[in-house]
C-alpha cells in the first residue's frame, strides 16, 4: 500500500517576537544555587575522603558478611529467659515513654499552635522551643545524658524515650491543632470561656480522633527507638545488642537483629491496624 501524502501545509509567517528560557535574575540565581550545592557536595566528598566506588561495593560486602559471619543466627540465645524478659522491658519502656511523652506534649502543642496558643508573645515561642529542642537532639544523645545523670537502667531509657516522644508527637499535635476549624473556638471565646474551657470544649472534640491516631503512631516510633536505647545503658534489649557486638558474637547479633526487625514489623502492623480502626470511628 502506498503511503498517502496529505494535503496539510504548515507554513507560517516568521515570528516577530523573541523568547528565551533565560529570565534575568531568577535563572541566574537558580543556576548559582544549583552550582553552589554541587560544589558543596563535591567538596564534601573530597573533604570526608569518601571513595565513591566503595559505596556500591558496600552492599555486596554487606550481603557477604551477613551470609558468612552472621549466618546462621543463634536462635538459642534469643529464646533465653533473660533475653525475653529484656524484650518485655523494652515494650514496657516504649509504653511508658510513649504515654508520658504524649501526656506532656499535648499542653506543649497547645502552646505551640499559633492559632489557639495562650499568648503569642511568651507561650508560643516557649512551646515551639520545647518541642523543637526535644526533636532536634537524637534519642541516643538523650539516653546518654540521662544515663550520665541518673545512672544505668530503665529510668534513664524511659525518660529519654519520653523526651523523644514529646518532640515527635508535639510537632504532629501542633500541626493538627493549627489545622482546626476556628469557628467553634471563636464562638466559645465570644461567650467568655477561659482558654482551658475553649481547649476542652472547642478544640479537643475536633482533634480527638486524630490525636489518638498520632498517639498510637508515637508508640510505634518509640518502640523502634526503645530497641536501641539499651545500647547506651538505657535498659532493654539494646544492652544485649551492645554486648554481643563488642564481643563479636556475630551469629547472636544476627539473632537479635532478626528479633528486633520482627518486633518492629509487628508493632508497625499492629499500630497500622489500630489507626485504621480509629480512623473509621471518625
Amino acid at each position: 500500500m502506498m503511503p498517502v501524502t496529505t494535503t496539510a501545509t504548515h507554513s507560517m509567517p516568521a515570528a516577530n517576537r523573541k523568547w528565551s528560557r533565560y529570565r534575568h535574575p531568577e535563572s541566574t540565581i537558580r543556576f548559582a544555587v544549583i552550582l553552589a550545592i554541587l560544589a558543596f557536595l563535591g567538596y564534601s566528598i573530597t573533604y570526608l575522603n569518601i571513595d565513591l566506588s566503595r559505596i556500591l561495593g558496600a552492599f555486596p560486602r554487606l550481603v557477604e558478611i551477613l551470609a558468612t559471619r552472621y549466618f546462621p543466627p543463634d536462635m538459642n540465645y534469643v529464646s533465653d529467659a533473660d533475653f525475653l524478659r529484656s524484650v518485655l522491658r523494652t515494650l514496657e519502656m516504649s509504653l511508658l515513654g510513649g504515654f508520658f511523652g504524649v501526656v506532656c506534649s499535648i499542653p506543649l502543642a497547645w502552646l505551640a499552635a499559633r492559632n489557639i496558643t495562650v499568648s503569642k508573645r511568651i507561650a508560643y515561642p516557649f512551646g515551639r522551643f520545647a518541642i523543637m529542642s526535644s526533636r532536634s537532639i537524637h534519642e541516643t544523645i538523650w539516653t546518654i545524658l540521662f544515663v550520665t545523670v541518673l545512672g544505668f537502667g530503665m529510668l534513664a531509657g524511659t525518660l529519654a524515650l519520653t523526651v523523644f516522644c514529646v518532640g515527635f508527637a508535639g510537632k504532629l499535635f501542633s500541626d493538627e491543632l493549627e489545622a482546626i476549624d476556628m469557628g467553634p473556638v471563636e464562638a466559645l471565646r465570644s461567650v467568655g470561656a477561659n482558654p482551658l474551657q475553649v481547649f476542652q470544649y472547642a478544640v479537643l472534640p475536633q482533634v480527638r480522633v486524630a490525636f489518638t491516631g498520632i498517639a498510637i503512631y508515637t508508640w510505634d516510633v518509640a518502640f523502634r527507638a526503645a530497641t536501641v536505647v539499651g545500647f547506651f545503658g538505657g535498659g532493654g534489649m539494646g544492652w544485649y545488642l551492645k554486648r554481643t557486638t563488642q564481643q563479636m558474637e556475630s551469629t547472636r547479633v544476627a539473632a537479635i537483629l532478626l528479633v528486633i526487625i520482627g518486633l518492629v514489623l509487628l508493632a508497625e502492623i499492629g499500630s497500622g491496624w489500630l489507626r485504621k480502626r480509629i480512623g473509621k470511628m471518625r
Binding site: M12, A14, W19
Partner: peptide, 11 residues
C-alpha cells in the same frame, strides 16, 4: 520550534 510556538500562541 520556539518560533512556531510563539506564532501559534499568538494565533
Amino acid at each position: 520550534d520556539i518560533d512556531r510556538a510563539l506564532n501559534l500562541l499568538e494565533r
